[in-house]
Write a protein that binds this DNA or RNA. Structure first.
Lengths: 243, 243
DNA sequence: GGGGAGAGATGCCGC
DNA sequence: GCGGCATTTCTCCCC
């Protein structure tokens, strides 16, 4: 299949979305350097000039360029080349197109934003509104605090007015989660000049090693699952629909 | 444009890659829950059953499903629906297809693996082979050690036989990098029963706060850039090619 | 399969 | 722009 460079480059300049399947090789130079030898790929250039190069397997693009790049289809050294650059980021992608399998030039419009639930923020909101999930003594004071103490998910105190810091994780808590919690506690102790701050990790689960480290520092773990408000239909029913 | 469900489902079962542009809405249920209202999107199902749903802007898929999912095109409640599930992961995606703009069914083959340089491992290799990048006194003993001490990038000693731990970061070092380094040092001290281990972070740069924390713990920072062995052509020349 | 950590991470928000 | 942090992170490697 032949490509008309003029049509292609015009599409690039008119906010079209381009989908190209082809056999190609790919060079990348920027934050790192990469080379990918000849093979069949799917190339997408979006209306915002995002470039995606996908192999026929795997969920991540094998090469890509962020929005705002410049793209140009041209002949070079006897090859058809799609040349992409982001001068601000000093990033370059060159694709040598050996064979074009298909080309789509599309005018796509989509102004929708995704609605998502079950995030860590949803978890901290839930705990703020239902503090008994942590303990019947826990009184929340603030959530998602971007203060001098750090980015604390939920902050409050217990019945003895001891300050309590809660770090939420939507999946499994690990060393990093414990490090974060201990960093916040340390900073609060320093800034307030006190020596008694309680730390709690709230997550569906925690690794054995992280739990050990947590307990070594006299902190606690609470098993809490992120809320999923959008859940509308019975999963069992969905399963039956499939088979 | 009309879609023949039989052809579509046959393609799914024959390892084809499918590219579909359409107006659709998307429901996701799994690790989280999401809903995306009507808009134009590009949908890809790869030969390994990876599902990608892309809006006309942005580099990440707005919804997706990992390889190994089951997909089926069917009529439901008067709508054409692409129904995807991964029972093992309890993940479900339902796409209501309002209008099909284009459909490509392709037989793509690609066995190539990408060659990449400039990673953190390349950095630790470079430091291991050129220890003077750290200090003229530094003698490396091992690299990329997955031992009981942790995953230490470069491990060695100085002229006084003091143990030295180096944590590499290919971009900017942050709190997390310092936490990692301190965790490794702590563990080595415990396991070896010694009290004198030196910690160094090697990275192109480090945030002010992380540097403060590093120095508070008597550790040091060395400015080191990751190597880029594949670099083949002059970037200035590339720039000129573009304009 | 889980744990730990890197990634050309990306994306978001705040300063 | 950088910083700090979550992500349906993903991917790799090792246990």
């Amino acid at each position: 299949m032949e490509i008309d460079s003029t049509t292609f480059n015009a599409a690039l300049n008119n906010g079209k979305s381009i989908i190209l399947s082809c056999n190609c090789s790919v060079n990348y130079s920027g934050r790192a350097e990469s080379f990918l030898a000849d093979g069949d790929r799917i190339i997408i250039i979006k209306s915002d000039k995002t470039l995606l190069i996908h192999q026929p397997q795997g969920s991540n693009p094998i090469n890509y360029m962020k929005e705002g790049a410049a793209h140009k289809l041209l002949q070079k050294d006897g090859n058809l080349v799609l040349s992409s650059s982001n001068l601000a980021l000093k990033e370059y992608v060159n694709i040598i197109l050996n064979k074009i399998h298909s080309l789509q030039i599309l005018n796509l419009t989509d102004n929708q934003k995704i609605q998502l639930t079950g995030s860590e923020k949803d978890m901290s909101d839930m705990i703020y509104n239902n503090p008994s999930l942590i303990s019947k003594d826990f009184k929340p004071l603030s959530r998602e605090e971007h203060t001098k103490y750090g980015f604390i998910d939920v902050f409050g105190h217990d019945k003895n007015n001891t300050l309590v810091v809660i770090e939420c994780k939507r999946y499994s808590a690990d060393f990093n989660a414990v490090d974060q919690l201990l960093r916040y506690i340390k900073k609060i102790k320093e800034l307030k000049g006190i020596n008694n701050v309680k730390g709690i990790i709230a997550a569906p689960k925690i690794s054995d090693n992280a739990l050990q480290m947590l307990r070594d520092h006299n902190c606690e773990f609470r098993s809490v699952n992120p809320p999923k408000y959008l859940e509308k239909y019975d999963k069992q029913q969905q399963k039956l629909d499939f088979f």
